[in-house]
């Protein structure tokens, strides 16, 4: 990240120097901190609200219920840890939180799940099959309610902030299925 970030900045500045775009560069350097703030704050306020609703779902045990629904599926997906119920619960919690577009709630549970899988891992330096499958599930990120994008579209005065959701669900599902299939084909040959 460090290298990508610094090279983008250096290359852009050099390119701007060659093309005499200094005026635009100056303007954006002076306004970028405030622009970012103005864009983060409304986003954060809506996310905070959503977080409140989610805590209700969590405290009343609704999240647990959803996790139970996912259990049979996860056992099939992660055969290496099917007897480790604690870890499976963390995996389920992570997947459920991701579904609701809450990355910040998903990450702590995902890390706990990784810890559990590492405890079951025979070679501590190499990723186990379960870890790979779990990460494919995570990077493809099945999201049913993409909270952040809805918030952004709402802020941008969209006439239909949620109109894209159906297509996004189909696309994210395709990505997950494709990733999981490739993982099965490549990593579960025996």
């Amino acid at each position: 990240m460090n290298k990508i970030w610094s090279s983008i900045i250096v290359v852009s500045l050099l390119y701007a120097l060659c093309n005499q775009k200094m005026e635009a560069i100056n303007a954006s350097v002076l306004s970028v901190a405030e622009d970012t703030f103005m864009f983060v704050v409304p986003l954060l306020l809506l996310t905070a609200f959503w977080n409140g609703i989610l805590y209700i779902a969590n405290d009343t045990g609704l999240m647990k219920k959803m996790e139970h629904l996912l259990h049979p599926l996860l056992k099939k997906l992660l055969p290496d840890i099917k007897h480790d119920h604690q870890t499976l619960a963390y995996v389920a919690g992570n997947v459920v939180a991701n579904m609701f577009g809450l990355g910040s709630a998903a990450t702590p549970m995902g890390l706990k799940a990784m810890e559990g899988m590492q405890a079951n891992n025979k070679n501590k330096n190499k990723a186990s099959r379960s870890m790979v499958t779990f990460l494919v599930l995570n990077t493809a990120g099945v999201t049913i309610i993409p909270t952040t994008i809805i918030a952004l579209r709402h802020n941008a005065m969209s006439v239909d902030p949620m109109g894209f959701v159906g297509c996004a669900i189909i696309a994210t599902t395709c990505a997950s299925v494709a990733g999981l299939l490739l993982d099965r084909i490549v990593n579960y040959r025996e």
């Binding site: 990784m114 810890e115 330096n125 190499k126 994210t172 494709a178 993982d183 490549v186 990593n187």
Partner: peptide, 26 residues
């Protein structure tokens, strides 16, 4: 983030599978 948390260096083929899923998604 996830692999550095449990100190795993050999991430197997997870990166390529993840990128493949991204491509399909896009």
């Amino acid at each position: 983030l996830y692999f550095s948390y449990v100190k795993i260096k050999d991430i197997s083929n997870s990166l390529w599978i993840g990128l493949f899923a991204d491509l399909i998604g896009i």
